[in-house]
């Protein structure tokens, strides 16, 4: 078990958004979380990554045997949690290469490993960039600064490839991507999928799941997981929309 979320409740500014979420991800599993806008999908991602404007109101999250909710955002990352941001931040003056060097070496230090040699590190970056068809010139550019939407999302997956997380949370990584960029991003994600790690793929659209095929699909609505199933659930949602589930939930 990589992560075990039990009855997680959280909110912002006194408003409860997550009203009791339970979800377990085991090694090798990809879980998709779908739901209409405002259902709490991005809140879940933010709370797991440790964004401090959200308040945890109840429940527990065990990650790698640790109490995740008790850890700083950087320690969560060092333990192997990775959030691919819905809106990656532009940081002028910090080159992508320097940023990644800091990130990788901080994580290595946490795990008691020596920093990577610069030459080996550069070679590794160049190799991993190929996964998402990024040009090496991006390494010297300021992080996300002036990148297109698609370039930013590819950069997120490139960072994931460099950091090799145990659990990757992809927060609407498909939003705003054209089909070519979507194919590239999904190709990168699939290449990083293995029997040791897990992923939570948050998306509004079923389209992404044609490319990243999930083992489980959960529907989040009004702060709760109201239905779980296999990949066929995503297809049913594509066909019938979310209203069908909302109605069933309301009746129940």
């Amino acid at each position: 078990m990589i992560i075990d979320i039990k009855d997680l409740k959280a909110g912002i500014d006194g408003t409860e958004i997550l009203k009791g979420i339970s979800l377990t991800v085991n090694p090798g599993e990809v879980h998709a979380i779908m739901g209409p806008n405002g259902s709490g999908k991005s809140t879940l991602a933010s709370v797991l990554a440790g964004r401090d404007e959200y308040n945890v109101l109840g429940g527990t999250v065990e990650f790698n045997g640790h109490d995740l909710l008790d850890m700083s955002p950087e320690d969560r990352a060092r333990e192997g949690l990775f959030l691919a941001f819905q809106y990656p931040v532009e940081i002028p003056g910090v080159s992508t290469a320097n940023f990644l060097k800091s990130a990788v070496n901080e994580q290595r230090k946490y795990r008691g490993l020596p920093p990577l040699e610069p030459a080996a590190f550069l070679a590794l970056m160049r190799e991993r960039m190929k996964l998402v068809e990024m040009d090496p010139s991006f390494l010297q550019r300021s992080l996300n600064d002036g990148f297109s939407g698609g370039e930013k999302k590819r950069n997120e997956i490139f960072q994931m490839a460099m950091l090799e997380p145990k659990l990757a949370i992809l927060d609407e990584t498909d939003s705003g991507l054209d089909i070519d960029a979507l194919r590239i991003v999904a190709g990168g994600v699939n290449a990083l999928r293995n029997s040791e790690n897990g992923m939570i793929v948050i998306t509004h659209y079923q389209r992404l799941l044609n490319y990243i095929v999930p083992d489980f699909v959960h529907v989040l609505w009004n702060g709760r997981i109201v239905r779980s199933g296999g990949k066929e659930l995503a297809l049913a949602l594509e066909e019938k929309g979310y209203d069908w589930i909302k109605q069933e939930t309301a009746v129940a």
């Binding site: 440790g50 700083s72 950087e74 990775f82 941001f85 931040v89 901080e106």
Partner: peptide, 10 residues
Amino acid sequence: FYLQARGIGR
């Protein structure tokens, strides 16, 4: 926060 989320201390 973005940098922290990559493992860089605050």
